[in-house]
Design a protein around this nucleic acid. Structure first.
Lengths: 111, 111
DNA sequence: CCCTGGTATTCAGTGTTACTATGTACTAGT
DNA sequence: ACTAGTACATAGTAACACTGAATACCAGGG
């Protein structure tokens, strides 16, 4: 993907993961695989795990350890009330950004 | 604005400034003031200047020193060919992100 | 004359975040 | 035993925006 996406992901990736978790509970390996399918081809596993640790420490998710048939136990994360609030806040900020950027884009050659 | 915007701005602020400069040449102080008007109330002056130095060093802009009636000379930046290319690349990346995020948002409660 | 305030740029130090590159752990199949 | 796939964890690094301050230039007021 390149460095540009990397920088833009900062701050956004957390929102993406929160959004995923608001759909349904999920664990790190699963989330990483899903992201890769969606075109975020360069996202390293370590990145997702680190992010999950951060949002857990900030109390945005509940964790449930579930044994797996193949491999070590999964840490299944689900969004709690505080997480939903944080997600709503993320969407507000995201809307602000898209609106501003949209205007900027229109004010020029477009594309 | 808060910390959330700060993190999301990473990588995006550069695109914003490139977009501004593609409309017309401008200098740091002016850009900062404009951003504040647009609602980016928390952007520190130092941030914009640092960004301008970066994109200058990467050869995306041409610089022109213009005397000011009040204060030290202005460094007026204008986008060159490489800068326009970088801006186009930014819009591509931005489109990718907005598309993915848009889908994510729809796939849930919306808002 | 000095001092404040607005214009304009610069820089050292800090915090957050994503990446790289590993390492660990568990299971199934050969 | 060995390999491959699943699953999580972490130490070190780079990039970027912020904080806070300093510097420079000019105007007007006390």
């Amino acid at each position: 993907m390149g460095k540009q996406v990397t920088e833009m992901l900062k701050g956004v990736l957390e929102g993406i993961v929160l959004a995923i978790l608001s759909n349904r509970a999920a664990y790190g390996y699963e989330i990483t695989a899903w992201l890769r399918e969606q075109g975020f081809t360069d996202i390293a596993e370590g990145t997702v795990y680190a992010l999950l640790v951060r949002i857990e420490q900030r109390g945005l998710v509940d964790v449930n350890k579930v044994p797996s048939e193949k491999g070590p136990p999964r840490k299944v994360y689900s969004l709690n009330a505080q997480g939903h609030e944080q997600l709503a806040e993320f969407w507000r900020t995201w809307s602000f950004l898209t609106e501003r950027l949209g205007q900027l884009r229109e004010s020029q050659g477009g594309n």
